[in-house]
């Protein structure tokens, strides 16, 4: 089954450069492992929410606003799509995402086309 692991946090919890490098290295190691084993379909980090633009279409009319969908402290910071046998492996993967230590990872199955 395919699952989205949606990473929410309010930024990297440290200004220490060595620690930031370590977090980056942990992400890279997880990504390389996942690609090699075939469990990761795709994984991306997102730019900060002040770069976001939100689009809505109402009655055929498009409105475009500057900023994210919702102003919250914890924001969507990145995501992985993984392809694993059951939710157990998806939860194990989510627990290995570095941001899980200070933010939250929401695990959701991809829509399978059912009602």
């Amino acid at each position: 089954m395919k699952y989205a692991c949606l990473i929410y946090d309010d930024g990297v919890p440290t200004t220490d450069e060595a620690e930031q490098r370590q977090i980056h290295a942990d992400y890279m190691a997880l990504y390389q492992d996942g690609l090699k084993s075939g469990s990761i379909v795709v994984g991306e980090g997102l730019e900060r929410t002040d770069t976001a633009t939100t689009v809505r279409v109402r009655d055929g009319k498009r409105t475009t606003t500057d900023g994210p969908y919702a102003e919250t402290k914890e924001v969507l910071a990145g995501f992985f799509i993984v392809d694993v046998p059951t939710i157990d492996e998806a939860l194990d993967f989510a627990a290995k995402i570095p941001s899980a230590k200070w933010g939250s990872v929401e695990v959701r199955p991809l829509w399978s086309g059912g009602a």
């Binding site: 046998p85 059951t86 939710i87 157990d88």
Partner: peptide
């Protein structure tokens, strides 16, 4: 069904 919760006995390590 939708989130793939397995009907299986966890491995000894789990």
């Amino acid at each position: 069904v939708q989130s793939g919760i397995p009907f299986s006995v966890p491995a000894p390590a789990q």
